[in-house]
């Protein structure tokens, strides 16, 4: 039992390192090969965890080999369009200028019901509102609505937006200052300490503090 426990810890660390090396993708945005590798890694890690007769290193080698191959293929994909297309396929336009490309749908084995379902997930409930719909290499549907169906923007009404969009960064998370965030906002650490002092708060009392480059900030203190 102790052996199983130790193996589980080692394999967990190995899988975390492997996925960290693979890079940042959410499951819904993974390319097919990335999804396959993620599933394979899970299976490969499970085998030596439960089968004590198999050397631990077998699982570790298999996992790391997959990751290394994935990284090499990713680098080649970056450099070569042809290779990338071979590996990932290419996006397919299924609605072109408002007209459904039934041949493209058939090639993708996409039924009409699936198309409607994907549109509804994009909050499009009337197919005639769609100018272009593209099935990406991840299988996700991207939609461009007809101009008269798109949400209004300040530039459409020729008015200035109420406020310039600014990125909110987290300056204090769970009672700890995040120094790397200060270069993305107009506040300094000294400013933050002054603000907290005026509110009779200490850094450790703050659950979350965010600020943007315009000097706007928001503080949520910890529950008692």
């Amino acid at each position: 039992m102790a052996v199983t426990f130790i193996r589980a810890v080692i394999l967990y660390v190995c899988v975390v390192i492997a996925l960290r090396l693979m890079g940042k993708r959410q499951i819904g945005e993974m390319q097919p090969k990335e999804l396959v590798i993620t599933i394979l890694i899970a299976e490969l890690a499970a085998i030596p965890m439960s089968d004590l007769n198999s050397p631990l290193i077998n699982g570790v080698i298999a996992i790391l080999t997959l990751i290394v191959l994935e990284i090499f293929l990713s680098v080649i994909s970056l450099k070569s369009n042809t290779f990338r297309r071979l590996l990932n396929g290419r996006p397919a336009i299924v609605i072109n200028k408002g007209v459904i490309d039934q041949k493209a749908l058939k090639n993708l084995r996409f039924t009409a019901e699936e198309l409607m379902e994907s549109l509804r997930q994009q909050e499009v409930f009337d197919i005639s509102d769609v100018k272009y719909a593209i099935v990406e290499t991840t299988g996700k549907l991207s939609v461009l609505l007809n101009a008269d169906r798109q949400p209004l923007t300040p530039s459409d009404t020729k008015t200035a937006p109420a406020s310039d969009a600014a990125l909110n960064v987290c300056l204090i998370c769970d009672g700890k200052i995040k120094k790397e965030s200060f270069n993305r906002c107009s506040l300094t650490q000294k400013d933050v300490e002054q603000i907290l002092t005026t509110r009779r708060l200490k850094v450790r009392d703050v659950f979350l503090m965010t600020a943007d480059e315009n000097g706007n900030y928001n503080i949520i203190s910890k529950d008692c």
């Binding site: 890079g23 290193i57 080698i61 790391l64 080999t65 990751i67 290394v68 990284i71 090499f72 680098v75």
Partner: peptide, 18 residues
């Protein structure tokens, strides 16, 4: 960096197997 790490890892794996 990732590519270099992958290359080093590959070398280690091949060496260990050998």
């Amino acid at each position: 960096k990732r590519l270099i790490a992958a290359a080093v890892l590959m070398l280690m794996l091949v060496s260990f197997c050998t």
